[in-house]
Structures are given as structure tokens and as C-alpha cells.
Design a protein around this nucleic acid. Sequence first.
RNA 1: CCGGGGAUGGCAGAUCGGCUUAUGCAGCGGACUGUAAAUCCGCGAAGGUAGGUUCAACUCCUACUCCCCGGACCA
Length: 360
Amino acid sequence: MGESKEKIINRLISNNAEIITATELQERLKSESQLTHYIGFEISGYVHLGTGIMSALVMKDLTDLGVKCTVWLADWHSAINNKLDGTRETAATIGRGYFTEAMKASYVAVGGNPEDIEFRLASEWYNKDPESYWGTVIKVGQHTTLARMLRSIDITGKEAGEDVDYARTMYPAMQAADVFFQNIDIAHAGMDQRKIHVVVRDAASKIAPDKPKPIIIHHPLLQSLNGKNKEDKMSKSNPDSAIFVHDDPKDIEHKIKKAFAPEKEIDHNPILNWTKTMLFWNRSKPFVIERKEEHGGNLEFTSYAELEKTYATGNLHPMDLKNTVAHELIQLLAPVREHMAKPEIAAMKADLDAVLAAKK
RNA sequence: CCGGGGAUGGCAGAUCGGCUUAUGCAGCGGACUGUAAAUCCGCGAAGGUAGGUUCAACUCCUACUCCCCGGACCA
């Protein structure tokens, strides 16, 4: 790897939606001891690009900076939010199975070595020291107001209009406690987890006053392929809004073809948004648009800004961009498809297929 | 536990003892765009469960299940 640490740090700062705070990250990376990272996931279904690729891009960069990265399989949380069949056992099984394999393969897709990532099952960790964990949950609760917790719930799985059972109100305190319990230096998630992570920062001075506050990294969320608003994000529950890491080439082509992509529009344009967020994350080779002579011939871009500018003028047609993006994604995800094709891995996905089918 | 209300397509939401169970959104197909969206045309799709009344029940009655609202009990 020829990249300098400085270059990687700068990339993390500019590509992520936010880092709280970038200065703290820079400073603490200079320390002797290895920093610990974690990103937590509910086990709720197939892994899409936002989960698989976006978090892998961040983890790859952090790993290259010497950070120890961990993926937290939040089985308790999944059960609280009634994901899959609503049981912790199923969340644990799928988490250890399909989900872990899909995440490892995604990490390979972005050029990483999956051996570098540790996968932890939440319930197993709690059982190592229940007294400490559940005590921390209560402690977080004591240092945060109810209103604050309630505000962070609607971003942890509650859908509009859905009834909220009481257990859900415990979710944010658990999520915050996860950070302290594992002694995490860098808590990472998508931008949708912002509210709870700010609670973590605020509670930190009370829970662990002698330690520096956890650093927060939020990667950008990918726009939904068919969303009516630019704020609509890729979602598992709307398969046409998302591409799953294991999708085969024809699924990818189909979904990209159906995607919303107005000409010259750069603001609400998922295809452009994905290009910027994923395909240009750490791009070293030029982005080549192949098109027929009648449409102007091939185009080459070495920066996203350049591509965006051309698109805005109308000199890059959505269809040509779509073709290229589909092609790039198919290539990017090749390692995932390859991994998922192994019989034992395919069987894990079949387990998840069955759980999801039973839910309908 | 008591009282009240409710259960209709994927979702929302009307109507009616027999006649196509509307309508909106979503979905699907087509037209139009060098993509998609928008627009237009077309299509598929429903009555919690078990009984009963009736020539006929989604519609009336009973029970059950589940949900919502209020109250009680407890503290």
C-alpha cells in the first residue's frame, strides 16, 4: 500500500458525513496504543451497499491506519425491534452466518483482509460480565433524559405509525452502553445514528470521566434508487431502493436501469450520489464512460467534481452514467458473489431466505 | 379484570343482505421520453377465526382471537 497515513486521514475527513471530532481523531491516531473501532448492526435482513460497502470503506481506511475494527452483531437489539422472526436466537444464527459472511465478502470487495475484522455477538459479550453491562445501561439511563432517548428511537428502527412497545425505549441506552462496555475509541455508523451517538458523547463524561470521549464517525447514507425525496435512503424493506451485496449482475443492471436519474440534476440523483459516495471513495483509476460515437464517444474522469460538472451541463446523459455505474458495481461486488456461491455460504443465505419468507 | 370501539386488497380507507366491495397510494404491463421520474392508457389484488340466522352475509347474531381507547385493581 503506497498511501500515506495523512492521505487516508484526509480522505476519512472529507468523505464521511461527519467526524466528531476530526481533530480528536487526528490527535489520538498519534498515540502509541492501538485505537479500537466498532460498528453495530441489527440483524434484520440482506446486506445492502450502505451496510456492506460503505462501512467496509471506512473500516478499510481505519485498519490501514492501525485501528482495530470490530463489527458488532446486535442480536438483542434486533429482537427488541422485532427483526426477522423476533427472536434473539434467530438474530444470532443469521448474524453469525449470512451476515458475517456478507460483511467479510464486502470487506474483500473493497480490498481488505477479513481476518483484520473481529465479529462480536452482543449477547455473548454481555454474558461475559452481565453485571457490568446492564449496570452501564442503567447508568446511561440515569444520565440521559427520557425525551432525549425517545428522540433517538425513531432512527433506530421504528417506522412511522408503528406502535412502540416499552422495550424499544431501552434500546438507545443499550446501544450507548455497548460503546462503553467494549471500551471503544471510535464508534462508527451511518449518519442515521447521529442522535444516539451524541447521547454517547454527552454521557461519556459521566460514565467514564477519566477517559477521552469516544470519537464518532458517520459515513454518508446512500440515496434510495427510487425515492421521491433526496432524503430517502436505501432500505432493505424496499428491494428496488437498494442493491444487496450478493445481487447478481442482472439484478444490478435491472435496478440501476429502473433508478431515478433526472438529466442534469445533481442534487436528488441516486446514481450520481452513489458514484460520488462509493465509486469515488478512494478511486485511483479514471472513471471511464463508454458510449457510442453518436452520443459523443467515450469520456474519462479523474475526479468526481469534474464528472458532476459535466453531468450538470447535460453533456453526460443519465443512461450512459447508469451503464457505467452498473458495470462498476458488478465488478466491485464480484468477490461477494463468488463468496456467496460457496455451498456452505449459500446455505446460510438460504436460512435467511427462509426466515424472511416466513415473515410474509 | 370491567366498559367502549375496531378487524375489508401490500398500505390507507368507503359502501352494501343479493347487482363489478368503491376510491387513493403502492405494484405490474404499455405509450411517451436516448435512462428513470412526471403524464396518459390498461391490469392484477381484500372482508381475523369458528358457528348461526337467511333462498342469499363482507354486511345481522353468538363465541373466540387480536388491536385500540377509557377505567378499575395494585402501588
